[in-house]
Each structure stands twice: as structure tokens, then as C-alpha cells.
Computed example of a mutant assay.
Amino acid sequence: MTRSSPFGSPLFLGFDHLEQMLERLSKNGGEGYPPYNIEQTGPSSLRITLAVAGFTMEDLAITVEDSQLVIRGRQAEDSQGRVFLHRGIAARQFQRTFVLAEGIEVKGAWLDNGLLHIDLERLQPESRARSVPIGSRPGGATP
């Protein structure tokens, strides 16, 4: 059974990259760790907040790869000499990916009380309207 895509229509020329991003997003959709919030902090600004208790700044990495914001966390094993009677605090690695729309820029990030905050801003696109002149067929011949 083949899956039809709305981007297969001839009306959507050049949207192949958008279709690929949607496919990547659907593959990542089931992962729920770490939990996060997305809030609008201004008319053109957003903030993503991830709950990363137990992670230090050195344990976290934030990159932008092909219009995707990727947050990775990996804790170093420091349980040397410690005996846990119960270990309920997760010490696992994670990767959380957010697809960024065109014109969204990452402005900064900070870690505060176990919450990683990432500020984003939507840049106002400049108008790209232009006229296309209509001329005669090159060479003057008609078909």
C-alpha cells in the first residue's frame, strides 16, 4: 500500500524539503522524554523549555541541523563508590528534535533550576514580489 502525499500535487513545486521534515517529525513523535513546553513570549518570539533535572551545561548540546533544532543530553556516570537502595532519577541520554520553520532563528539558551530554556525569534521576511515582463518568443518564430 503506497502512502499518498499532499506534496505530490503539481501545485506544490519545490516543497520536497518540507515533506522530508514532516517525515522526520512523524518518526520522532512518540518520544516523550524530556517533557517540554513551548510558549509565545512576544509577537515574534518563542521559548522552548525542557525539564532536564540532573543534567549540567556540560551534559547538554544544542545544534541546528538542516532547519531542525536538536537538543542532546548525556550524563557522565559518576556513581563510583555510591550504593543506591533505590534509583528513581533517570540518568539516561536523550535527543529531542524540533523542526524550525523558515525564518526562525535560535537567539540563545540557558539552564536554570533543572530547566533548559531556548529562545527563538521569527524574523520578518522581506517582500519578494516582482514583475515578470511578457515579451515575444525568442527568435520571433511562432509554433
Rank of each mutant, 00 (worst) to 15 (best):
S67W: 06
T63Q: 12
R122S: 14
P35N: 06
G29Q: 09
Q20P: 03
A61R: 15
E19N: 07
L100A: 04
R92Q: 03
Y33E: 03
Q20G: 01
N113V: 07
Q95E: 14
S9E: 00
F12W: 03
A109S: 14
T2D: 10
Q68K: 12
P138C: 02
G135D: 09
F15G: 01
Q93K: 06
G42I: 10
T49D: 13
F15Y: 06
L69H: 09
A91E: 14
F7N: 01
V52R: 11
T97V: 15
R74C: 03
V106Y: 08
L100E: 07
E31Y: 01
L120H: 15
R130S: 12
P35V: 11
F7T: 03
R137K: 10
L25H: 04
L100T: 06
P133Q: 07
D66G: 08
F15W: 01
W110N: 07
I48G: 06
E121V: 11
L50D: 08
Q68T: 08
R74F: 04
R47C: 13
L13C: 02
N113Q: 12
R3Y: 06
L18V: 13
R87C: 00
Q124M: 10
I104V: 15
E77K: 12
D119Q: 10
V64F: 13
S79I: 00
L85H: 13
K27T: 00
L60I: 12
A53F: 10
V70L: 05
T2G: 07
R96F: 14
L11D: 01
G8I: 00
Q40Y: 01
A129K: 04
Y33C: 02
E102F: 01
E65S: 08
E126I: 15
G54W: 14
E23K: 04
R137H: 11
P125T: 13
S79N: 07
G140R: 12
A53I: 09
R122A: 15
Q93R: 07
L69E: 09
F98P: 04
L115S: 05
S67T: 01
F84C: 03
Q20F: 03
S67H: 11
P125R: 13
A53C: 02
A129T: 06
T63P: 04
L115M: 09
A51H: 09
L50V: 07
L22R: 14
S79L: 07
S127W: 13
G108N: 06
V106S: 08
I89D: 01
P138H: 04
R3S: 07
P133Y: 13
S5G: 00
E102K: 14
R82H: 13
